[in-house]
Design a protein around this nucleic acid. Structure first.
Lengths: 212, 212
DNA sequence: ACCTGAACACCGTTCAAGT
DNA sequence: ACCTGAACACCGTTCAAGT
């Protein structure tokens, strides 16, 4: 008699997918209250379950953070690709826009960006999906560089060397902005990203200055 | 009768400088157990005082983190300068070594480096000593660049532009290493730092590739 | 001034138990 | 399978109180 009520409207398993609901709650908490406010108990609260229910889907808090970070890398990849499309088929501009997209994603989602990198996972290898999502982002960059090399626009040295340098550059700028070390220029993120990438492309040495 | 004992050997104020003792405890915790293990109560425990005693010297945990970060920036400045001395008076090498010193400090003290940047201080301006210590590190870099410009070795554009680019580059590499995103090359920090700085100096564009 | 102990409102995690 | 409630060992912070 009473069970028929519960089967129709209110299900015991609230969302049909608690795992998904917890990730969504986490993103909501992160976006509104910051990474420090993301707590297993609060995520459970917002999903409408007891504070121990998350342990059915995440062995520990770290695992939830890994899932949130994984989603972040997928969003990052999409943001970079979207930005590159604005550059049509100019390889050098696509290369630069990938970096600008990286920085703009970071300042647009600072807390999420922090979780993607700062969440000191004991061993990243324990989360292969996260690792793969990170690699996918990195591949966007290496692909862009290789396209430039094929067009003869970028020096024909090892892609990994150029990619590591480019990644370090935009990651550093992103981190400095996210960590509020460049507070006065916080609103200038896009211009700063354009500046530093242009400087990397051109180089720093004076034109006629080779070692004596 | 009993008071004479306490005045001679065991003082009520344990270290004569609890503030200093708490910072030292914090550095010890950070170095051995990581930034997450740094807790006001644990720092107090190691300093041999009650868990509320720290509030006499630090209004909240954030203030202790700021003091620890400040010390970190002073150490960073020293590490950069020390490293630059190895390059004698070659301006370009001094410039490069400042960056290598930056990265090596980070990988040598990963948890401390994380506190220096990651400890999301609501407003950095509330900690002027910390801010000044950070600027001092930055000035080492700008000084090195200006020396190169005076010697005609580096392009005569705005120092701030070159400094921001250089800082982003080494900070990004440092962060990626500290956050274990470059795990396979963890032992290669110095070589990676040398590689990325050399790439920035030289630039990425192909020699004969100017826009059509 | 400097320090303490009790108290409050939180955590992450474990465990026996319910359906 | 999925979820709950009580419990444990922690936090940061506040407050009345002691010397």
């Amino acid at each position: 008699l009473e069970t028929s009520v519960s089967t129709s409207s209110a299900r015991p398993y609230h969302h049909g997918d608690l795992r998904r609901a917890l990730i969504d709650s986490s993103l909501e908490i992160i976006a509104t209250a910051g990474a420090r406010a993301l707590t297993l108990r609060e995520a459970a609260r917002r999903a409408g379950v007891s504070h121990t229910a998350p342990y059915r889907h995440f062995s520990r808090k770290e695992a939830l953070l890994a899932a949130v970070a994984e989603e972040g890398f997928r969003d990052l990849t999409a943001a970079m690709l979207e930005r590159m499309d604005k550059a049509a088929d100019d390889p050098l501009r696509r290369y630069q826009e990938s970096g600008i997209g990286y920085v703009l994603f970071a300042v647009g989602h600072p807390a999420h960006f922090r979780v993607m990198f700062g969440s000191d996972l004991a061993d990243l290898a324990a989360y292969p999906d996260l690792q793969e999502a990170g690699w996918a982002s990195y591949r966007v960059l290496t692909d862009a560089i290789e396209a430039c090399q094929r067009a003869g626009l970028v020096r024909a040295v090892a892609v990994q060397d150029l990619a590591l340098t480019s990644w370090s550059l935009v990651h550093g700028l992103a981190m400095l902005l996210v960590d509020r070390q460049l507070e006065p220029w916080a609103a200038e993120a896009e211009n700063l990203a354009r500046l530093v990438t242009a400087t990397l492309h051109r180089g720093v040495l004076a034109t006629n200055a080779e070692t004596p």
